[in-house]
Amino acid sequence: MRRFFLIAVPYMWLLALFMVPFIIVFKISLSDTALAIPPYTPTLDFAAGWQGFKSFLSELDWENYVFLTEDDLYWKAYISSFKIALTSTILTLLVGYPIAYGMARAPHEWRATLLMLVILPFWTSFLIRVYSWMGILSQEGYLNQFLMSFGLISEPLIILNTNIAVYIGIVYTYLPFMILPIYSALEKMDESLLEAAEDLGCSRFTAFWLVTIPLSKQGIIAGSFLVFIPALGEFVIPSLLGGSKTLMIGKVLWEEFFSNRDWPVASAVAVILLLILVIPIILFQRNEQKQREAEG
């Protein structure tokens, strides 16, 4: 009885507030837009009983999905989200790896402090961290002021409201997610392996390439997924730092819902995004599983 209660309470909560909402999203993605409250038809009429349920089912169709494939805004947004997420994941890896490497090779008594310094920004507001770049990157912003005062450029660079600003925003906000798994992989590494490689005639660079990188592979994979997956559905960064030309699917969904008030299409956009995300999520889980098996 006690065990039943323990399982049932969180189970019911998640079913009601996580699972059921998804079924509703899926159902509405098959509905039609209507000028009503709520703005879609058909709605399920419980009073009509089984007959009502049957007519309800017969009115559902895949129209919104057909619409998504026909209007090129949507598939362009999916492709461009994918490109932006992939590019920024690679950039985050290039920025994050040297930092993780430096931390793992730092003197022992420094490591806890360095670790805390990486985690600290994660506790401060995401919105504020993105916002802080608006003042830096804008046309009369600090970066342009700095570069012009040194005479490095004569015209201000236009960075804010371009994809470059979105890349910077994603790299900046998701950097800790990349650093932490790589750091924990590198920290476990036995440094005598590097000495062995050098004794056997490797240059330092070859030893790094042939020993360190393969040994930190799992950390690199985990970090990359931890950046790529949330970046794909990102909304705040493209809205604040990106321009009108920056297409990302999270932004499209938001606008479809709040500006166009087209709930069925917004729901269809959400369902497709979810289907796209399933693949990287499964790959990530498999990588974690492999790591656990290697350790245990």
């Binding site: 909402p21 729901s267 995300l277």
Partner: peptide, 19 residues
């Protein structure tokens, strides 16, 4: 259901709860 919300895009979680 425990692990899915950790990777779920916020726009989807928000939309589904609102509906």
């Amino acid at each position: 259901m425990i692990y899915a919300p950790l990777v779920m895009p916020e726009v989807i979680t928000g939309l589904s709860l609102l509906l």
